[in-house]
């Protein structure tokens, strides 16, 4: 009968089955699609879609020319119909512009300065706090950690706005100082560098405390006892034992504060001076006020490079640190 499966037709198939057994998909998946690879693929895919692709788009825009159109930049390459060739027009003028215009250089330097000083204050404030939390009893430790994380439950924007209310001329702080008779005229607190430092330190302190705490919590308290036993004063013990051992935590915390602080937009916009901008503000102005997407993109790329250097340094330090331990 036609179409019927006879043993004769199935013969080769059956002999294959006989020789190799039934096909085992699970085996194939196990050897070629290990769970480890699948899990690793997810963050890579995420990075590709939401970091690499947008980055390449921004990079592309940074090399094009501004144009009053939609989109507001000239295409990087074009198919010239009449000449039958691809016209590629790379344009480095945006980057040159960044270097030559004093505004951008000074904004860069100012941003780095503000971020560095704020990071230093975060460290000075955060280190003792992290140390105290790490040395507290387990119950208190959980309570303190809760308190550190608690501000995150309110909107970041709202918390920065709250500082406006605290710092302004007829704000809480000035009213309090004048009400008690300590001052006759209000202090200028708002729209100063001081206000920006307060805003950044306040907002980013948890990012300093948490990695420091994670590091300090692992220290063996017997090391300090051993140091004391060998004749070291508590201050010497701190400088020679605790501080060097906590360096990875200090670096992690500092980078977690410094990197976002350099590009901070909200805090300097709400609390900072109007005559000295930070790089985040310049970026936003270029995009939205000037509609100069190519220059804005160049600013973004330059900022990224500026921040990439510390990240890479940090990564290398981390891997060396881990390699040095057992």
């Amino acid at each position: 009968m036609p179409g019927q499966l006879t043993p004769g037709r199935l013969g080769p198939l059956l002999s294959l089955l006989y020789r190799y057994g039934p096909p085992r998909w699970s085996h194939y998946v196990k050897t070629h699609w290990s769970g480890q690879r699948l899990v690793m693929a997810i963050p890579y895919l995420w990075l590709l879609l939401f970091f690499a692709v947008p980055f390449l788009i921004v990079l592309k825009i940074s090399f094009s020319e501004v144009r009053l159109a939609m989109p507001p930049y000239a295409p990087l390459w074009q198919w010239a119909e009449e000449a039958h060739r691809l016209v590629v027009s790379f344009n480095f003028s945006n980057y040159l512009f960044l270097l030559t215009d004093a505004l951008y250089v000074s904004t860069f330097l100012y941003s780095v300065k503000v971020a560095a000083i704020a990071t230093l204050f975060c460290l000075l404030l955060g280190y003792p706090m992290a140390y105290a939390i790490a040395r507290a009893t387990p119950t208190l430790r959980n309570l303190y950690l809760m308190l550190i994380i608690l501000p995150f439950w309110t909107s970041f924007l709202l918390r920065v706005y709250a500082w406006v209310g605290l710092l302004k001329a007829d704000g809480v702080i000035n009213n309090l100082l004048m009400g008690t008779g300590l001052l006759d005229a209000p202090l200028t607190l708002l729209y100063t560098d001081f206000a920006v430092y307060i805003g950044i330190v306040y907002s980013y302190l948890p990012f300093m405390i948490l990695p420091l705490y994670a590091n300090l919590e692992k220290h063996d308290p017997q090391l300090l006892e051993a140091a004391a036993d060998l004749g070291a004063h508590p201050l010497t013990s701190f400088l020679r034992i605790t501080w060097p051992l906590s360096r990875p935590g200090v670096i992690a915390g500092s980078l977690l504060v410094f990197i976002p602080a350099v590009g901070e937009f909200v805090i300097p916009s709400l609390l900072g001076r109007s005559d000295q901008l930070m790089i985040g503000r310049v970026l936003s102005d270029e995009f939205f006020a000037n509609r100069d997407w190519p220059v804005a993109s160049a600013v973004a790329i330059a900022m990224l490079l500026l921040l990439l250097v510390p990240i890479v340094l940090f990564q290398r330090f981390q891997s060396r640190e881990i390699g040095g331990r057992q």
């Binding site: 017997q222 090391l223 051993a226 036993d229 060998l230 508590p234 060097p244 051992l245």
Partner: peptide, 19 residues
């Protein structure tokens, strides 16, 4: 205080400075 005593101790965990 411990750092001023004429005594030295060998700890059970040895407490060597790892760095």
């Amino acid at each position: 205080p411990p750092y001023a005593r004429p005594v030295n101790m060998m700890f059970q965990s040895y407490a060597l400075f790892p760095h």
